[in-house]
Design a binder for these strands. Structure first.
Length: 475
RNA sequence: GGCCCGUUGGUCAAGCGGUUAAGACACCGGCCUCUCACGCCGGUAACACCAGUUCGAUUCUGGUACGGGUCACCA
């Protein structure tokens, strides 16, 4: 069996849709799981929609996700001569023809829903008429001649046998009036010329693939193996499911990165959206592990809804597993930017490690540090630690001078001090910690305990906050 | 609308004729703890529907319903 070769062929739209990235991943894995080659090809034949710098987005994304290509990037706009040459061959062999129909006429063929294909008008032009039109410089396109009867079928690796009646097939355009080829044509030529053995792409091509098969047949080329992937869906607030789009939230790789997700977590999550390993329940995969485990049999036929909650969970797990060095590289600049100088951001970073799921939520998590929140005195009352307002007031009043006299303002010393106070006063440690933590944080849920927070705040701010709390009790 | 594809808990999903129908996220309890989180333990929750084949269907076949895709000088 010859070596497998797959490709990823995005059009440069300026952003990498997450569904597109998943297609790239699967295409990559189909090949790499078998030790094959992977090709990158930029499909930029739409002059109208061309976006400057869009290619960099593609290259960057692939680099960040670890999807590396062995060949390319091939640029289709640089291969125009090739497509023209092959289109001419098709005309000569009678598989394609010139069409001089105007856009207006084409438009008139559509019904009120905008549905309606070409009627094959120019297919029946006489040879002399065609030559005259050509000589007159009338704009033309080149169309593929579809069979009038019978059906065309192929075997898809995921969906099995797919069969379409040929009457459903329109005489699709191969070369546009501007001389550029359509996707329908150039991807077939390129896939063949580049030796692509497995075409891996989204399921939206499932029903148009017979047209491409016919093209292979017309050229006398061997058809590739097709692997169509189920679509990625999104769910809106009303519970309606549809193709994943902006209304569902962040949908591009870059959006996700900006929201604080890690490339590894994104890759891991989307790998599992439509694919499942055989004989194992493994959920965490490195790219190398994916290459080993991946198999076509594990691909799903049904669409998958993108679940931000689960992505978040994956991300939190990846953050937890991050070595401090890597973690600090990301978190420290964020904290530096947000926090006043007296905050011990190194300690804060440690507290946050393991308590954040996405880096973008750091700000809200430490809001209580950045400013002194309004105090809700009911927070002092906690049933588990049996705290009351009176008790908390007592604890704060008695521990304040002790804290003021403490020299080494670190977690261990603080903890020892409060523990000692607990022992001498007979008040449960939990109650002491609760009172101090509420006084210092002024909110019930915090990333860390009382003494850890005081270490982060530093002595001055901690004392100030406790004094404030005490004065509030007296008021 | 024609054609094509799909349908296991809220979500991702295993299953490939006989199972107490896995596992994960989310959710809800409990334990642990100087809070939260982590961790651990436990719980709620699913084979769209109707026929047929079969001793036996989640699994095979057909139909219905629902969902999606596609019918461009976009890819």
């Amino acid at each position: 069996m010859s070596e497998i070769k797959t490709r990823f062929a995005p059009s440069p739209t300026g952003f990498m849709h997450i569904g597109n990235l998943r297609t790239a991943l699967y295409s990559y894995l189909v090949s790499k799981s078998q030790g094959g080659k992977f090709v990158l090809r930029i499909e930029d034949t739409d002059q109208v929609r061309h976006v400057e710098g869009a290619e960099d987005v593609i290259l960057n994304t692939l680099k960040m996700t670890g999807i590396d290509y062995d060949e390319g990037p091939y640029i289709q706009s640089e291969r125009l001569d090739i497509y023209k040459e092959y289109a001419d061959k098709l005309i000569q062999s009678g598989h394609a023809y010139y069409c001089f129909c105007t856009p207006e006429r084409l438009e008139s063929l559509k019904d009120d829903k905008g549905i309606g294909g070409y009627d094959g008008h120019c297919r029946y032009l006489s040879k002399s008429q065609v030559e005259k039109n050509l000589a007159d410089g009338i704009p033309y396109v080149i169309r593929q001649k579809m069979p009038n009867e019978g059906s065309t079928s192929y075997y898809d690796k995921v969906y099995g046998r797919v069969s379409i009646d040929n009457v459903e097939l329109r005489d699709q355009i191969l070369i546009k009036a501007d001389g550029y080829p359509t996707y329908n044509f150039c991807h077939v030529v390129d896939d063949h010329l580049m030796g692509i053995t497995h075409v891996v792409r989204g399921n939206e091509y499932l029903t148009s693939t017979p047209k491409y098969c016919l093209l292979y047949d017309a050229f006398g080329w061997e058809r590739p193996t097709y692997v169509h992937l189920p679509l990625l869906m999104g769910k809106d607030a009303d519970g309606n499911v549809s193709k994943l789009s902006k209304r569902h939230g962040a949908v591009s790789f870059q959006d996700l990165i900006n929201d604080g997700y890690l490339p590894e977590a994104i890759v891991n999550y989307i790998a599992l959206l439509g694919w499942c390993p055989k004989d194992t329940n493994q959920e965490f995969f490195t790219m190398d592990e994916l290459k080993k485990s991946f198999s076509l049999e594990g691909l799903s036929k049904s669409p998958a809804v993108f679940d931000y909650e689960k992505l978040k969970w994956f991300n939190s797990e990846y953050i937890k597993k991050m070595p401090d060095e890597d973690y600090n590289k990301i978190i420290l600049p964020i904290l530096e930017n947000l926090c006043p100088e007296y905050i011990n951001i190194e300690k804060l970073a440690v507290l946050l490690h393991g308590r954040i799921a996405v880096f973008s939520e750091v700000k809200e998590k430490i809001e209580f540090i950045l400013s002194r929140l309004d105090m809700d005195s009911s927070l002092y009352i906690n049933k588990k630690n049996k705290t009351t307002l009176e008790l908390c007031s007592q604890i704060l009043n008695e521990s304040l001078p002790l804290l003021e006299n403490l020299e080494n303002w670190d977690n261990d010393s603080l903890f020892a001090l409060l523990k000692e106070y607990s022992a001498s006063s007979g008040i449960k440690a939990g109650a002491v910690m609760w009172a101090v933590r509420i006084a210092v944080a002024r909110q019930s849920i915090t990333p860390g305990g009382a003494t850890e927070l005081m270490e982060v705040f530093g002595k001055n701010e901690s004392i100030e906050r406790i004094k404030l709390a005490v004065s509030e009790f007296n008021a």
